[in-house]
Every structure is written in structure tokens, then in C-alpha cells.
Amino acid sequence: MTLTAPEHTAAAPQTPPAPEVPAREAYRDLLAQLMPGNERLVCLDSDTGLFNGVDFATATDRYLNLGIAEQNLMGVAAAMARDGRIPFVNTMAAFASSRAVEAVKLDIALNNLPVRIMATHAGLSAGHLGSTHHCLEDLAAMRLLPNLTVLVPADATQVREMIHQTSRIAGPVYFRMGRHATPALPETAPPLSVGRAQKLRTGQDLLLVATGPHPVALALEAADDLDRHGITATVLNMHTIKPFDTPGLLAAAQGIRGVITIEEHWRSGGLGSLTAETLSGTIHPPQVTRIGVADHFVSGNGNQQHLLEQAGITKDAVLSAAWQFMR
């Protein structure tokens, strides 16, 4: 049967989920709660303002603002980790993954130290500050470093759960967070487990693989629209970029017509590349369409939603790719 895309898809009106607090604020509040009860925990800030007015109670002396000096920040974190501490390093993703990447590589990853790099304003969430603060390269940079766990929570609840689960990881962890509040995942979502893909929906025709709050939301919305036309899609929230859930991806890709990846990142190097690399090792790899930012800088200033649309990271882009596979 040949399927053709409808010229106009009339989606049933839905009430969007209520936004939670931003993931970065959820992390901040949880850390402030945990530090008084665990003397190993240290918060190292880079003058971001996120912790202004936060009450650390008896742990106040373990909050240190090192100023806008991200390379030094990573070096200090490594030294404190070597001395038995667990530093939570707070900085913008654009600086953690580019300006300070040598220190992350040589001081932290090489020595496999328990530093938690809490990278905020990732993707296009700092769009109001222009291209200098866009971060579209961090997944590519960080997933290449040995010993480093790379996580992308899809909402505030997930960042809280990830912090608890990674307390058992002896090496470094990179957390990728945005700036604003985002919709919570559906209440029916299965429990999060670091290192395993979260299957949010099961289908037979297509596989949508997404990472990050907005891409995951787009994947779910697109799957709903496709379902109304008799097309079913599996939706995976790939919240763990490293270690990547290769068995989970391969199992979900069995028998489908195509794979669509969605990410707030350059198409090269991130989730799309990782998915294609993984599937290329199979006997009959499915075709992969990558939705992300093309090989150019996103010009101009604007809010995150405007820049996502400008970059083509939209539900319509997902649906267009889906209809191409179904034809």
C-alpha cells in the first residue's frame, strides 16, 4: 500500500503538560539539600548567579565561586576530587565543552575523577545571548572522552533522579541542561535508569530517537499525529549518550521502515551520528534521517523556540521525514 502525506494535518486540541521548574534549578535545590549531610560534596561556581541567595546551611563554606575562569574551575575540581571530594562544577555548556575541554580531558577524564560537570544553557537555550553562547557541539566533544558518562535529562524530575543514580559512579559525569522550564514527561513514562534508553511509546512502523526536553516532546507530538493516520512509532528517550544503550536501540530498530533522530545539537557528532554509527554494524541497517542543526551557526538572537524553528527542529520536520519513509 502506498501512503501519501495529508496536505493538512488537523491535530486534535490537547492540553500541554504544565512546565516544571528548569532542570538547572531542580539540580541547584537538590544539591543545596544534599550538601549539609555529605561532607564530600562541594559546589564550584563560575559566577553564573544560579546560586545567589541559596542557603547551604552548615555547608556554606563548601560553596566556592571561582569567577569566569572555566579552565581553572575544572583544574580545581580535579584537585579536590583527587583529595576525596565530589565537586559539582556549575558553568554554561558552551564553555564547559569548548573553552575548558582540555582541562576536562587531561585533568578530569584522564584521571577518572568523580567530578560532576553541571552544564547549563545547552543547545539554543541561551539564544538571547547570540551564537557565542549557543552550545551545539558538547555531545560530540564529551562523548569522545574515555571514562566520562554523558547525560541529557528530559525534564527536572530526571535530573534529580540522575544525580541520585550517579552517586554510585566513581568517575566523571557530564549533565546537559537547558535554561528554561520545560514540559514534564508523561506520567506513564517508565522509570529512568542511567545507561538504558527510556521507551516512551511502542510502534511497528518507525523509530523516533530523541534526546533533550524539546526533541523528546517533538517526538511524542509527532508520534501522536502519525497514530491518527494509522502509523505507529516507537519513541526512545536517549537520556544517556554515554554509555550508549546499543542493545536497546538495536531491539527497537528491528523490523521498522526507518529511524529519525531528533536533537538540539549539530547533526554531526551528536545523537544522530551515534545512532547511525551503532546501526551501521547490523547486517541490514535501516536508513537514518537526522533532525538537528545543519552545518552552520544559528544567526541572530532570539528565544529558544524561535531559534529551534529557524534551525528546522520542529514537529513538521519529524512528520515530513516520517512520510518520506512511509512512501
Rank of each mutant, 00 (worst) to 15 (best):
S131Y: 13
H8M: 07
F95A: 10
P186S: 08
G248H: 03
R228I: 07
L226A: 04
R116S: 06
T278I: 06
N65T: 13
Q158I: 00
V318E: 00
K242P: 03
R116H: 10
R327F: 01
V104T: 07
A69G: 09
V259T: 12
T232H: 06
L151Y: 05
V21T: 14
H180Q: 12
S98A: 14
T15V: 13
M326N: 02
E161G: 04
L34N: 02
T2C: 01
P16Q: 07
P191C: 10
R179N: 10
L110T: 06
N52W: 14
L31G: 02
P213V: 02
A233F: 06
D224A: 14
A156H: 00
V216S: 00
R82C: 10
V76M: 13
S280A: 14
T166K: 12
A79H: 04
E187M: 12
I117H: 03
L124D: 03
D227S: 10
R160C: 11
Y63L: 13
S280P: 02
R168E: 14
A317F: 08
F175G: 01
A69K: 11
E263P: 04
T4R: 11
R28C: 08
I241C: 08
E161Y: 01
F244M: 02
M326R: 05
F325M: 03
A79N: 10
I163T: 02
L207Q: 10
T48M: 14
L31K: 00
N65R: 07
R201M: 13
D107N: 13
V298H: 05
T157P: 00
A126G: 08
T211E: 03
D107L: 12
R257S: 09
N90M: 11
D45Y: 03
E161P: 01
I68P: 02
L145Q: 08
Y27C: 07
C43K: 09
T314A: 09
E187W: 06
A317R: 13
A233Q: 06
P13D: 11
A276G: 09
A10Q: 11
L250A: 05
D295K: 03
H164F: 11
L50M: 13
L73I: 00
E221K: 10
T188F: 11
V288I: 14
C135D: 15
R62G: 05
L129D: 15
S268M: 12
L271R: 09
L66K: 07
T232A: 11
E102T: 05
T157D: 05
M118E: 02
A77W: 09
E70W: 05
G49P: 03
G281V: 02
L41P: 00
D227K: 02
